[in-house]
Amino acid sequence: MSRIKAVDILAGGFVVLIGVLAIVESTSFDMGTSRRIGPGYFPFYVGVLMVLLGLVIAVENLWTRTASDFGWSLPPMRSPFLILAAVAAFAVMIERFGMFPSIFVAVFLGSLADTNTSIWQKLTISVAVPAVCVAIFKYGLSLNVDVIRWRP
């Protein structure tokens, strides 16, 4: 039960934090008047609303808990980490090395997220996916991206 409270308090804190960020950002702009609202007006009030909602979320669970809320735990981190790494690899490589190498690396990193496949399966898919992508995007849809380039 204490874990559940922890999640909702974190969630509420997250919403309050975003509200505060919005309010802080809005102070660097002119609020204007309600007749002629400035660029700071809308962010400020949405920020205030967020702070209020965040506070409600933090205390809400005290009176609306349901059975389905139990059993929360932190999900495993392997798959999120690897799949974000895959996107990062693609982002870093696409303009330096072109489509084939960047997708090869991205897919290989991503395939590591599945622990049930063999290394040969992973390598096969890492070659197959960029090959199919080149066929579809470069030759099928004539996307303006080099298949391979060298601009490290």
Binding site: I83, I94, S102, A106, V129
Partner: peptide, 24 residues
């Protein structure tokens, strides 16, 4: 099987996002 499918999804997501305005 999903292990064949999801690498394609990752690649399509990357290319799809990048190709909107060729922007990293």
């Amino acid at each position: 099987p999903y292990w064949v499918l999801y690498p394609f999804i990752i690649a399509f997501i990357c290319i799809g996002v990048y190709s909107v305005s060729n922007s990293v």
